[in-house]
Design a protein around this nucleic acid. Structure first.
Lengths: 141, 141
DNA sequence: CAAACATTGAGAACGAGTCTCAGTATCGCG
DNA sequence: CGCGATACTGAGACTCGTTCTCAATGTTTG
């Protein structure tokens, strides 16, 4: 895999990376763009999208696909981890419990695919929503 | 739990369901639309999208979000299974190899979530794209 | 310094999907 | 059967997130 490692650190890219690192949540590209604009109003969306792609490519960020047809989310925590997504409030908890290598190998063997990775999200109710009962969900579609 | 149970089986909806059931692959909505048009040239895309949403809602089909901003895909096989997605051509193969219950229980215990299910997609290269080398990808952007 | 190359911002273009609207089909009921 | 209420349809305009194009600007290297 022709991994790209080098990246010219322009002011724009620095800001994108800063926003990502400061983010407590897992912002979408559009959200990153919004936040970067606060600090650098003149920046173009194309630049932010390009920067994000570059950061992912160079291993400085992860792109998460949390299903649901939602837009990809970005995460400056580049270590491998999965998520448990609350079906009620949308909160995502980090899960650090990889699928066993043996299972991946077995699936590769059966399917004929060369497996380079996987995305795994658990669905359920977070502890808060379990106790909160059937009341007030926030404005999730 | 199924909010909506009734569904009027119009000719258009019947065709959409037929196409889905006949599909060996996991067509996107746009592909379903194309195929339905072969049999019913006058049909509108809105009708197909509406029919697909309805089929998913009534439990006759599954909607797969295979990540990466790709279009949703539909599957008339409504039993639990996962997918391996080709990063090159987008094709999805069925994977019938569930995550062990023990692992799910362990994750529930550690995270405090009540886990009701999970979505798992493997990424990689399908057999065809492995042998096809770096040449001719289909019209994937 | 100058040519070669990389990066940028603006906005056009794109593709998937949704919405609106007027017309048509179907249903329920007297 | 007749008729009004309701559901469904097709066309196409529209939205939204994202990518592309391109001229301008910045940076590197010889």
């Amino acid at each position: 895999m022709p991994e790209r490692t080098e990246l010219r650190l322009t002011p724009q890219r620095t800001r994108v990376l800063e926003v990502l690192k400061a983010a407590e949540d897992h912002p979408t590209a559009a959200e990153v763009y919004e936040r970067v604009r606060l600090a650098a109003p003149g920046i173009g969306s194309a630049t932010v999208y390009r920067a994000l792609a570059l950061l992912v490519e160079t291993g400085h960020a992860l792109e998460l696909n949390l299903g649901d047809g939602a837009a990809a989310r970005y995460d400056a925590n580049t270590s491998r981890h999965d998520h448990a997504v609350c079906e009620r409030c949308g909160r995502a908890a980090d899960i650090d419990h990889p699928v066993p290598d043996g299972m991946v190998a077995e699936i590769a063997r059966r399917s004929g695919f060369t497996i380079t990775g996987y995305d795994l999200q658990f669905r359920g109710l977070c502890p808060e929503c379990q106790t909160a009962g059937e009341g007030n969900l926030p404005g999730r579609r």
